[in-house]
Design a protein around this nucleic acid. Structure first.
Length: 720
DNA sequence: TGAATCGATGTTTTT
DNA sequence: CATCGATTCA
């Protein structure tokens, strides 16, 4: 008898291999978590390995929590001794301990994308970057890319003005982060990796963690790879789990080669393929397989299931985004009436913006739903404001947070004042916050001096007391001293929701304080860390009865019985932003594969021929090329596109273009008739919507209506 | 010098 | 559509 009796042959093979390198190629739904948790249980219960010696790295906190719970179910409280963590949390932990080795204080703040952009924007202003193409967002993403690739500012290849500018901003940015005692997401990994170059630290970590496991290995980047390699270097007991077909984070530096080359890296690695799928029906799996096999990077696997064929995949062609949402809505209502629950349904989409139509539809029909991701709770202006106060209190060197709140609520402290104070701080070689305390020595006006000093004092008082205060108390003091709520009351028309969010923040502090992990007390630093490192789906509750909405990216690792894959249109999915290089397209296809394989019983796929994009209507949208890649045997069309006789062509056009009968008049002077399909040299396919007598044509193109003078028409248009 | 108002502008995807 | 920045107003 072994605990491993509950596994299939392959799973068991993987779970029994404890020593040496192991690669588990786990297809979607193949019982990966089960295998890994049983493996840990087996190590502890049957091999006598101390749980302290085990490090398991996951992709999200939710995955970590789930793994810990499932191990606990198998081995009891010993499970708590296993280190199950995300790369980022693991790194932060280590960095808090050894921050000084890298020139940081242990109370460093963590900058999210928004903070990064603010800092980069500030630096760009200082460096007087004139190129309008280089927005803070673009420069930030390029800097992050350098960081993820392990390139220091000095390493950057400056082959033109743009790269020179980016490199200069990057250099300043890196300096500023240290001055601000702050790390961005990439730093958490980079600095962890740097720490592991320190003999003392490495020795300690290697001694402690004799066994290391990495989940979602296909989505690790080069730095994470180095971290893993260093830790595993002594004992070589490294187990990585992943699926190259589900690598979807290339844009964030994930390197699919890490998993593809694992066997080259560790010549004696054992490779186990988990190919039996326990999640989806034959039809769903067949559809997924037919798509992914077109990828050249796929190593090819034979995912199979004992499940029944199940339902065909339903394809719905909607006229527009609202009709698509209505379809989803009706299906859910139908299901609900047939005894299903809201929680049985999940809507998946490519971009966060798509959630809106569904949210509106669900609200109208009082269907309970929850959107995961998108504008994160902690990123909302009003919440981030309060968090910024907390961050300044936690780490007064953090000028990104300080500048954010210095004039919130309005205190008549503007850019010019801030500049003067900064100059003073530089002159005196003190921090900006300290300069605020010595504002009397500056040349600022008397009224300003009072306001600034008051703010300084308020913050300083809390800072001095911080170790005697609970995080809730700090929150209360901030709200009280700043009168933030009354400020919000005059903020905008959505002030009620904003106040609600600020109150909700207090609830979330209390929830954390009362959680098992913190047992009544969470320090300010720990709280801020939690808010910085939460992932979209960390708070997903399987049991709550709501329809779940999220991006496909966020759905990774999850499974749902009924899935609506919506917005299946070219330009949206695959995204028009993907430059259609092979690599990009393959990543989009993997994303499609991930989406399909989330579904257990029923998959609906929909697309619309019109939809709002940026507040304008985009017309004549084409179904996604990926839709055409799905083997016909697995799909059925809910509303088969009507076959239209040539005579009735116009009525088909009127169907989706709202051309009324009176529009069918013909202007004799024009060679073009209303309803006629044309191709424009620049704008592509279009339909003539109107002919303004002898003057110009109104043509509906994908990205909107255009008016074209008749004189130009013959030059640019050809009949379709 | 700060606040208000009005245009321009852009979004894949996220720890 | 919604946010951000520049321009203008007070």
């Amino acid at each position: 008898m072994s605990i491993l009796d509950g596994l299939n042959t392959e799973q068991r093979k993987a779970a029994e291999k404890i020593d040496g390198p192991l690669l588990i190629l786990a297809g979607a739904g193949s019982g990966k978590t089960r295998t890994v948790t049983y493996r840990i249980a087996h190590m502890v219960l049957e091999k006598g390995i101390s749980p302290y010696k085990i490090l398991a790295v996951t992709f999200t906190n939710k995955a970590a929590k789930e793994m810990r719970e499932r191990v606990e179910n198998l081995i009891g409280l010993e499970a708590k001794k296993v280190m199950v963590s995300t790369f980022h949390s693991f790194g932060v932990r280590l960095l808090r301990t050894y921050a000084t080795k890298l020139g940081y204080d242990s109370n460093f703040n963590i900058y999210d994308g928004d903070d990064q952009k603010r800092l980069v924007g500030r630096i760009m202003k200082e460096l007087v970057v004139t190129n309008k193409q280089l927005t803070p967002a673009i420069v930030t993403s390029r800097i992050s890319k350098y960081k993820e690739d392990g390139e220091e500012p000095a390493d950057v290849d400056v082959y033109n003005t743009d790269t020179r500018v980016v490199a200069a901003v990057y250099e300043k940015y890196a300096e500023e982060l240290i001055k601000n005692n702050a790390m961005d997401f990439a730093d958490l990994l980079i600095n962890t990796n740097k720490l592991l170059d320190d003999k003392e630290v490495l020795e300690k970590i290697q001694t402690r963690y004799e066994y290391i496991m990495v989940d979602e290995y296909q989505d690790t980047n080069n730095i994470q790879y180095q971290i893993v390699t260093k830790i595993a270097n002594r004992h070589k007991n490294i187990c990585v789990v992943g699926d190259e077909d589900q690598s979807i984070y290339g844009f964030r530096g994930a390197n699919i080669k890490n998993i593809l080359d694992f066997e080259k890296e560790y010549k004696d690695a054992m490779v186990v393929k988990l190919e039996q799928n326990y999640r989806s029906t034959k039809n769903i799996l067949g559809a997924a397989n037919s798509v992914i096999k077109l990828n050249t990077t796929s190593r090819g696997k034979n995912l199979w299931t004992e499940k029944e064929k199940g339902n065909l995949i339903e394809i719905f062609a909607a006229t527009d985004g609202r009709a698509e949402a209505d379809y989803v809505l009706q299906e859910i209502i139908k299901g609900k009436n047939a005894g299903k629950s809201y929680k049985d349904y999940t809507v998946l989409y490519r971009t966060n913006a798509q959630s809106r139509v569904f949210e509106e539809a669900f609200l109208r029909h009082r269907i309970s739903y929850k959107i995961f991701g998108g504008m994160q709770f902690y990123q909302r202006v009003e919440v981030k404001d309060i968090l910024s106060y907390m961050r300044v209190i936690n780490n007064p060197k953090d000028t990104v947070s300080l500048f954010r709140i210095i004039n919130v609520p309005k205190r008549k402290i503007g850019a010019a004042t801030i500049d003067k104070l900064r100059t003073f701080a530089e002159l005196e070689n003190i921090t900006f916050f300290e300069a605020m305390g010595r504002v009397e020595e500056t040349k600022l006006g008397p009224a300003l001096r009072v306001t600034i000093f008051q703010l300084y004092e308020t913050l300083k008082n809390i800072i001095d007391e911080v170790e005697f205060l609970t995080t809730s108390e700090i929150y209360d003091m901030i709200l009280e001293k700043t009168n933030y709520i009354s400020y919000l009351e005059t903020y905008d028309e959505k002030f009620e929701a904003r106040i609600e969010n600020v109150r909700e923040l207090r609830t979330s502090i209390q929830e954390m304080e009362n959680s098992e992990q913190y047992e009544g007390f969470i320090s300010l630093g720990e709280f801020l860390e939690q808010t910085a490192l939460v992932a979209a789906t960390d708070d997903l509750e399987e049991d709550t009865d709501y329809v779940k909405l999220m991006t496909i990216h966020n759905s990774k690792g999850l499974e749902f019985s009924n899935v609506f894959l919506v917005g299946m249109e070219d330009e949206l999915f695959p995204s028009s932003k993907a430059d259609f290089s092979d690599d990009d397209l393959e990543e989009e296809r993997r994303l499609c594969y991930v989406a399909i394989t989330r579904a257990e019983e029923k998959l609906h796929i929909s697309h619309a021929s019109e939809r709002m994009v940026y507040g304008r209507i985009s017309y004549m949208r084409e179904p996604s090329r990926f839709l055409k890649e799905i083997d016909e045997n697995y799909i059925e069309y809910v509303n088969k596109p009507k076959i239209i006789s040539p005579k009735k062509q116009e009525s088909k056009l009127s169907g989706f273009n709202l051309i009324t009968k009176k529009d069918f008049k013909v202007d004799e002077k024009s060679p073009f008739k209303i309803g006629e399909k044309v191709i424009h040299k620049k704008f592509g396919n279009g339909v003539i919507k109107d002919v303004e007598a002898g003057k110009r044509l109104v043509i509906r193109f994908r990205d909107g209506d255009k008016k074209l003078p008749l004189i130009l028409a013959e030059k640019f248009l050809t009949k379709q």
